[in-house]
Design a protein around this nucleic acid. Structure first.
Lengths: 199, 199
DNA sequence: CACTAACCGGACCACGGGGTCAACTTGGTA
DNA sequence: TACCAAGTTGACCCCGTGGTCCGGTTAGTG
């Protein structure tokens, strides 16, 4: 992402403006949000959008990458926590909160194929894997789940809460809590099917 | 939905064809599937689509209503089952399977406002409410969840599984199982936030 | 300050979308 | 069988979209 030559001051500013404007616009209107609207929201011409992101998909990818990297960083920090179970809980909470602020889950479907996105995704999957493994070996979660399971489940609480109009902004915590209860080792009923293989 | 005068034979046939073609097309290409493609898939002219459904949204609504009614019917039948816990499990399984066959969860977001859709939704919510109440009073699920909670959670297993390409077609069972474990009364950690109020 | 490469803006284009309509076909009835 | 309302069709319209492009502007360097 960072270009060879450093961006000119105004260009860098506009890029930041565009990224947040796009995230907001997508959150409000879904993937269908138009590039023109995004440009207007950022206070910038439409051409400028395409100067920074060759294509709409690339814009989406940039947002995805930004969020993914932030989460991965947090996850890596949490790998050093004493309480592995609590660390996993904290990670999932942060993930859900990030999505709560601006629900962009639908973006994940788009631009799945872009290489940079795949890389960030793979890295995040790796971090989750280690978080889960650590929690599992400490007996904090059931033994039959994998990192991939948790990676997938990560998106669920906010997805569920997003279906409620005028919901309390903390509603997702409720469903995260239920899912976390489902991940506990005590009395877990054996899981059907094989764990998925991602990436 | 059933019109005053009964439909002519060919019209009725086309309507059925359209409904399933539309469901398939939406499942494959999301809400963005074009009316023209749907018509082609049904082996019918584009004009015919609009004769049966004044608008694309109305088509979507018709699909939603169809599925909702089928689920509600099943739910009502399950209200008479002996094992209330098993009944709830079966209902959720059916709901997830229906969505697995053709994932149309995203349709729910659209045409939320249409009156007929709202009615079907309200009815289904009522059925779920009773299923949950029954299971709760029998000690089959934790006491701090409501019908609305379960109604929302209903969509989650398939949503989660839908994010993995080339997944086993039964992957959703895995996540339904985790969620059901999270709904059990034993050792449930108290839920944060208030249960949502729907409709 | 002057100069230039980087940057910006918005008119412009081609395309694909939902929705309309008037000419044509067909199912059902008397 | 003859008739017509119900049903079908696809060319057509209009609009919003992603993406292009070039004349004008500006940041930064010497």
């Amino acid at each position: 992402m960072p270009p060879n030559r450093p961006l000119r001051a105004d260009a860098a500013r506009n890029q930041r403006l565009l990224l947040t404007a796009a995230a907001d616009e997508f959150a409000e209107h879904g993937l269908g949000a138009s590039v023109a609207d995004i440009a207007r929201r950022a206070g910038v011409g439409k051409g400028t959008v395409f100067r920074h992101f060759a294509t709409k998909d690339e814009l989406i990818a940039a947002i995805l990458i930004d969020r993914g990297e932030r989460l991965s960083t947090l996850g890596e920090r949490l790998l050093d926590a004493e309480d592995a179970g609590e660390a996993l809980r904290e990670f999932l909470t942060a993930a859900a909160r990030q999505r709560q602020e601006r629900d962009l889950s639908f973006l994940a479907a788009a631009s799945q194929s872009m290489e940079d996105v795949a890389k960030v995704r793979a890295h995040m999957l790796d971090v989750v894997d280690r978080l889960v493994e650590r929690a599992r070996s400490r007996g904090a979660v059931r033994t039959d789940i994998t990192g991939a399971d948790v990676f997938l489940l990560m998106c669920a609480p906010n997805y569920v809460a997003a279906n409620v109009p005028d919901a309390s902004p903390d509603l997702w915590r409720r469903y995260l809590s239920i899912i976390l209860d489902g991940l506990r080792p005590e009395g877990a009923s054996p899981l059907p099917d094989q764990p998925p293989h991602l990436g």
